[in-house]
Design a protein around this nucleic acid. Structure first.
Ligand SMILES: [Mn+2]
Ligand SMILES: [Mn+2]
Ligand SMILES: [Zn+2]
Ligand SMILES: [Zn+2]
Lengths: 148, 148
DNA sequence: CGCCATATTGAGACAATGTATCAGAAAAGC
DNA sequence: GCTTTTCTGATACATTGTCTCAATATGGCG
């Protein structure tokens, strides 16, 4: 991006991320990363096009970048019945969300009992487990009671 | 379908399936069902269009029917990294994945112990839980030992 | 710094996929 | 059979996804 010389906090972090994965650090990739990483429940690619194309990020670039991030496991795709494919940032450690399929409210929750499962998996496969991503879907009480 | 009066074995089974789910049993639905149920790894919708449209099944019907089957949990959608969404006949349990961050190999595993967690969540939040998505990340033994 | 080799980008044309509408056909239930 | 309700396919349209290539930015190196 021509003429950008300012150093922001985010750029520093993202540059390190790129270095760690051996890919060139471009402003477009940072913008795409910020867009998807910002919201825990993720976005669809068309969402990103709608939001970022007006900022001058090309459509092809968005598709290419998401594909790249997915290949590097920086983003992961999630799809539930009746939904479109969303891409959410893979963060090391735990991430748990409870999502209402009707009103789309997101409830975060802390405790999960996957430590045992991870231990079992580790023993069986020899993997060193680093983290996991869990989304639980359902219908919230308001939506179940009221309309919709 | 005009002029079809023959009774085939499959029609009988599928008719029962439809009756059990309270939907009208049409020849188009049977064809779509056979197409997806036939192969364990499933198909994409465009696959089905390519295969079934020449047989006179309309494109809209295929989309509508897959959507219906998914809603009735006769088909379920699957999507792995870099793949398109495929629809497979609902048979057994969940498809949880264990992914190596280094070599990207994917190990599927069957058992997860989320029923208890879901029950707890349901009690605490009032949500009616419908499903979940779980990915576990780590490093496989080969990658931990050898290079990469 | 500036230069160069290389990789990335955006525009635009194009292809594929997905959606809405509606008149005609078929299924279900007498 | 006959009626009511639902489903279906054609068509037109909208959205999403892919490809190519000249212009540009990046990273590495004097
Ligand atoms: Mn956890
Ligand atoms: Mn499960
Ligand atoms: Zn809700
Ligand atoms: Zn590995």
């Amino acid at each position: 991006m021509a003429g950008t010389t300012h150093e922001h906090q985010h750029q520093v972090d993202f540059a390190a991320l790129c270095r760690a994965h051996g890919i060139p650090c471009t402003d477009q990739r940072r913008v795409v990363w910020d867009f998807f990483a910002q919201h825990a429940q993720g976005h669809t690619i068309p969402d990103a096009v709608t939001a970022l194309a007006p900022q001058g990020i090309g459509r092809a670039t968005i598709y290419r970048t998401v594909e790249l991030f997915e290949r590097l496991h920086l983003l992961t795709s999630v799809r539930d019945t009746g939904e479109k494919v969303r891409y959410v940032a893979v963060c090391p450690g735990h991430a748990h969300t409870l999502i209402c399929r009707s009103c789309h409210q997101v409830v975060e929750f802390e405790d999960c009992d996957l430590a045992l499962l991870e231990k079992l998996l580790s023993e069986r496969t020899g993997f060193a487990i680093a983290g996991h991503h869990l989304e639980v879907y359902g219908t919230c009480p308001q939506c179940a009671a009221g309309r919709a």
